[in-house]
Design a protein around this nucleic acid. Structure first.
Lengths: 260, 260
DNA sequence: ATTATACTATTTGTAAGACAAATAGATGTC
DNA sequence: GACATCTATTTGTCTTACAAATAGTATAAT
C-alpha cells in the first residue's frame, strides 16, 4: 500500500524513505498532521469514498497508510467523531464506522454552537426571538400547505404531553421542543427542518426560564392549542399571528425576569 | 491537586463467574475518557469558567489533574478544536486557548454538515433551493428595513468584483457567496445571519455548477444588480420577486444540467 | 446433538516516555 | 544599544506496551 503524501515540513521520518521533493516552501502548510488526516478522511467520506455504515481501515492500517503514528490517526478520528461523522466500536468486527448524521444530532451540535454564541455575548436572546419571528413567516405558510395528518398527529401528541400537569419542568420543555419541531417538520422540507431546529433549540433557555422561574405553563399551552387549530384550519395568517403572540409572550416574560 | 472522579469501570469486572445479566447497557457509561474530558472542558468554557482568549492549563497539567494520560487529554482537545472552541499555539506562552467562534467558522461547519447531508442523499438541491425560497421572505423584508449604507456598500463591492470578467470561476463563486452574505448581514440580526449563512453555503455547489458547466455569469449578475437596486429603493416586494427569479433560474439550470 | 462455557484473535482505549519543533524571554557578544 | 545565541516551556509526533470489549471458534457438559 502506497503512503500518501503529506504537506508537512517536519522531518522526523528518519526511518522512512519518503520523497520530500514535493515540499514547496512557498506553500508550506503548518496545520497539524491530525488535522490534515481528518480533512482527507472527511473529504473521502463526503465525496462518497466511504458510504454510511462503512468501516474505515483500522487505526493501525490508517497509521501505516498515512505514514504516521496511531495517536495522530486517533486525534484525527476524534475530530471526525466530534463532528458526528464516525463512531468507534471495539472488538473484532469493530472499527471506526461512518454514521448516518441525523437532523437531531446535527441540530444539536448547531444549537451547541448557538448557545456558545449566546454564552459569549455574541448573540442575545432578544435577537434569537426576533430571528424566529423573521424566519417563521414562510415556514408557517408552507406548513399550512404541506402538513399531513401524520404531522398534525405528531403535534397533537406533543401538546397532549404538555397538558399533563404532572410532568416535570424538564419534560415540559422537551415537549415544547417536540411541539415546535413537529411544526417545522410539517413543512416537509429537510433543509428548513435542519435550520429551524437550530433556532428552536436556541430558544430552549427562554422556555426553561419561564417554566421554572415564572412557573406559567397554561399560557404557553393555550397558545399552542390555538396554533394547532389554525394549522388544522389551514389558516396561515392566524397561525402566524398566534405564533407572534407566543413570541411576544416569551419576550415579555424574559425581559421581566432579566430585570429582577 | 486532587484527581477528579471519572465514570469509568476500570478493572473490577474481570473474572467472569459474575452474573452479567444485571448489566444495563443503557445506564453504563461507556463514553470514552477523552469524550468525558471534552464534555467537561466544553462545559467549563460555555459556563464561563474560561473566557475567550484564556489559556487552558497545559496538557501535562490537565493530564495530571484529570488523572489520565496526555494522549487522552489531547484527543479531548482535538474534539474541542474540531468544534472551533480552542486553538493551540506552541512554545512558551503557548498552550490551548479558548477562541472566539466567528459566524463564518460556525456557518462553515454548519454548511459542512449540510453538504454532508446532501452528499449522503438526505437532502437534495431542490430542497435547499426551496428552503431558501421559504426562508427569504422575512429576511428580505427585514433587510429592506434595516440595511445601512455600509451594508449596501458591502453588497456593491461584492457585485463589483463579480462584474470583472477576468476573475476565475472560484473567485466568482466566492463573490457570489459574499453578495448573499452581505445581503443577509443587512438584516442586522446575528441569529438570522448564522442560520442563513448555512443555507447560502449549501447552495454553493449549484452556483459552482452553473458557472463552470453552463458558463453563464451575466444572468446571475444582472439579477444581482436588480436585487441591489430594489434594496436601495427599499422595495421588499420587488426584491423578493427578483430573488425568486434568481432561484427559478438556478433551479432551471440545475435541472437542465442534471438531466444530461 | 445441543447448549453452555471458555478461549482466542482482533480492534479500539489508555498509558508512559521520549524526542522534535516552535517560540518567547533571557543572556551574552560585538 | 543592537544583534545573535542560548534556554526553557509547551505543543506536536512517535514508539511501545498493555487493558478492555467482543465476535467467532473450539471445547466440554448435559
Amino acid at each position: 500500500m502506497e503512503k500518501m503524501s503529506f504537506k508537512v515540513q517536519t522531518t522526523p521520518f528518519l526511518k522512512s524513505n519518503i520523497d520530500k521533493s514535493y515540499i514547496d516552501k512557498s506553500s508550506i502548510v503548518k496545520s497539524s498532521i491530525s488535522k490534515q488526516i481528518a480533512e482527507q478522511l472527511r473529504e473521502a467520506i463526503v465525496s462518497g469514498g466511504f458510504k454510511i455504515g462503512d468501516r474505515l481501515p483500522t487505526e493501525d492500517e490508517l497509521a501505516q497508510r498515512y505514514g504516521v503514528s496511531r495517536p495522530s490517526v486517533r486525534e484525527a478520528l476524534k475530530r471526525l467523531a466530534a463532528q458526528n461523522l464516525v463512531r468507534a466500536r471495539r472488538g473484532p468486527s469493530g472499527g471506526n464506522f461512518v454514521v448516518q448524521p441525523s437532523y437531531e444530532e446535527l441540530a444539536g451540535s448547531l444549537s451547541g454552537a448557538a448557545t456558545l454564541l449566546v454564552g459569549m455575548g455574541a448573540l442575545d436572546i432578544v435577537e434569537i426571538i426576533d430571528a424566529r419571528r423573521i424566519l417563521q413567516g414562510g415556514c408557517l405558510e408552507h406548513a399550512v400547505k404541506n402538513a399531513t395528518t401524520a404531522h398534525i398527529a405528531d403535534i397533537e401528541t406533543a401538546l397532549e404531553r404538555q397538558r399533563n400537569p404532572e410532568i416535570s419542568d424538564e419534560a415540559f420543555c422537551q415537549s415544547d421542543v417536540a411541539f415546535h419541531r413537529a411544526l417545522v417538520d410539517s413543512t416537509g422540507n429537510g433543509m428548513v427542518r435542519f435550520v429551524m431546529y437550530t433556532v428552536i433549540e436556541a430558544l430552549i433557555p427562554v422556555t426553561n426560564m419561564i417554566v421554572t422561574v415564572v412557573r406559567e405553563r397554561s399560557d404557553i399551552i393555550s397558545l399552542h392549542e390555538e396554533m394547532l387549530q389554525h394549522l388544522i384550519d389551514r389558516n396561515s395568517v392566524l397561525l402566524n399571528q398566534s405564533m407572534n403572540k407566543l413570541l411576544d409572550y416569551l419576550l415579555a416574560k424574559f425581559e421581566l425576569a432579566s430585570q429582577s
